[in-house]
Design a protein around this nucleic acid. Structure first.
Length: 275
DNA sequence: ACCACCTCCTGATCGC
DNA sequence: TGCGATCAGGAGGTGG
């Protein structure tokens, strides 16, 4: 499910629903989600704390709790949060449940169990893994920043866009969309990008992120739903998942290839490799 | 520095 | 219909 716009949508929705709630207890049914070595310590550090604020960096959700404790949560492929009453039945794939003092619960649901959670102190939050290496958020980038990040490097454009140390928040869907909107081939070597190309990447990245957030994220499978991300509001995709369909710019057939090990969609007519 | 590939999991879909 | 192979929106790790 989640790239930056989806995570941002979840953040905004969660903020409205759980801010100021106090954690009374935590149930953990699958503890590999929790990165902290001591799982009991993880629980005891959270019990009695209040959710003060919910932030985000790239695709990471950051729960700020009282006493300067931070819970960093990454949804990976399928992580979702739900709010339910305490007495509601525990469904399959709900791995971690935060019980609040008002008898509501925040439930972390993750079919593939790829998601992660870890606790950080205020000092460590941005000075330790995973947030210390994360690049600038996708909606904040500019040409100078991309130039610095791509300088003297040979790398495929899509791989560059997906590398969270370069830009935070872009995933497989929007990487394809950005390449297409900028008329650049996903395998284009970033070494040969012109200033105009970089400017095109910046403009289209910001634009697609903004529109996706306004639309409440993008979900491919219609049945998928998460907090605030219903799948009813979909950003219209230009190329992603549109193999063999017509390119909206030129009418050519969209093809699917593999770039950096990921399924990649592009229009071979609009997106040609230069140099 | 960069690339191809593997791994963590489960479930949907594809091809025979 | 059955059943194994393949793929999925992420990212860390390996070895070449």
């Amino acid at each position: 499910m989640p790239e930056m716009p989806e995570v941002e949508t979840v953040r905004q929705t969660l903020r409205k629903l759980v801010l100021n709630k106090e954690i009374k207890d935590i149930s953990v049914f699958y503890d590999r989600i929790i990165q902290d070595k001591d799982k009991e310590q993880f629980k005891s550090n959270l019990i009695g704390k209040r959710i003060v604020e919910i932030g985000r960096k790239g695709k990471y959700l950051i729960f700020e709790l009282s006493d300067n404790i931070f819970l960093v949560s990454h949804l990976r492929m399928e992580g979702k949060y739900f709010i339910k009453n305490n007495d509601e039945e525990i469904v399959k794939h709900e791995h971690i449940i935060f019980h609040f003092t008002d008898n509501t619960t925040l439930r972390y649901h993750d079919t593939r169990k790829f998601g992660t959670m870890e606790l950080k102190s205020k000092d460590d939050l941005y000075n330790s893994e995973p947030l210390n290496k994360i690049g600038m958020d996708a909606d904040m980038i500019d040409v100078a920043y991309l130039k610095e990040k791509s300088r003297n490097k040979h790398q495929e454009l899509k791989v560059f866009l997906l590398d969270q140390t370069n830009i935070a928040g872009i995933g497989n869907i929007y990487a394809d969309e950005i390449c297409h909107l900028a008329n650049l081939h996903p395998k284009q070597d970033i070494y040969y990008l012109s200033d105009i190309d970089l400017d095109n990447i910046v403009i289209n990245t910001k634009n697609v992120m903004k529109r996706a957030i306004e639309a409440g994220g993008t979900t491919i499978r219609s049945y998928t739903s998460s907090l605030g991300v219903t799948g009813l509001f979909q950003l219209t995709l230009e190329v992603h998942t549109r193999e063999n369909e017509a390119c909206k710019k030129c009418g050519n057939q969209i093809i699917k290839i593999r770039v950096g090990g990921r399924g990649t969609y592009l229009c071979p007519n609009c997106q040609k490799i230069k140099k």
